[in-house]
Simulated assay, not measured.
Amino acid sequence: MGFKLNYLLSILPRLIGAAAVNIRLAVIIMLFALALGTALTIVRSLKIVAVNACIAVVISFVRGTPLLIQIFIAYYVLPAVGLDLSPEVAGVSAIAFNSMVFVSESMRGGLATIDAGQIEASTALGLPPHAIWLKVVLPQLFRRIVPVLINEATIVVKGTALLSVITVVDVLRTAQQIASASYRPFETMIGSALVFLVINLVISLSGRVAESRFAAARV
């Protein structure tokens, strides 16, 4: 059974339509990951030994286990303790939790590049800690980790494909359904790969534009 370009073109609209699910979930995940990662970074900066020890254990778990297992835990294990989540909520929770850790690690590294004198000057002026974070630290920090956030966004988009295993009807799940009905997995998998490739190329190009604008603003 040879490759048929016409068949690939005929199924692309359906795959592109399904990509709306991946994009929607990826946006939600990144917003949660950015908010939670920022909060985690601030908590870690307080240097409370017991809290940081617990956070270190969580980070080790997230970094040391496959994302797919984390998704399975959210979908299959959490109901056993009373948290019965829908496939999308479980998937978003698992990937956002995973991404939160990597965002926080990136922000922690970015903090080291911010001049401590700015924080000391802000403190001397009488600014409260929350104002220092909101007006001095975080604006600079977000600008400096834009490349990392763009890279994380592409990872998140690819990670949403894993949600097909818990019945989320996304690009990959749709491709599997088409392949099962048509017995043409070659074209359907190529089509799904192209859809993800285009999405991530758009994200990467948007990131480069944002980087150049931030660089121009600093000049």
Rank of each mutant, 00 (worst) to 15 (best):
I95F: 05
S106R: 10
A26V: 09
P129K: 04
V49T: 14
G117V: 10
N151I: 07
V195A: 11
V103P: 03
V49E: 15
S45F: 13
S45R: 12
V57A: 15
I95L: 09
I114K: 03
T174C: 07
G2I: 04
A33S: 15
F214P: 00
L67G: 06
L83F: 15
A216W: 02
G109H: 10
V49F: 14
A215W: 00
S164F: 03
V202C: 12
T154P: 00
F97Q: 00
G109F: 00
V168T: 12
A18T: 01
A96Y: 02
G64D: 10
V27P: 05
A112H: 12
L134I: 11
I73Y: 13
A124M: 11
S122N: 10
A175E: 02
F214R: 09
L197F: 15
A50K: 12
A131P: 02
A161W: 00
L201W: 11
D170I: 09
V195K: 01
I119W: 08
L25G: 00
L40P: 07
I28N: 08
P147I: 05
Y76N: 13
L163I: 13
A175L: 00
L67M: 13
V195D: 07
D115E: 14
G117I: 14
S182Y: 01
V156N: 01
V136L: 07
L172K: 05
K158A: 12
G82H: 03
N151D: 13
L162E: 00
T38G: 08
Y76T: 04
R173L: 10
G110T: 13
A179W: 10
G207W: 04
A50W: 15
G82W: 06
A193K: 07
I55R: 08
L9I: 12
L46R: 15
L85S: 06
A124K: 15
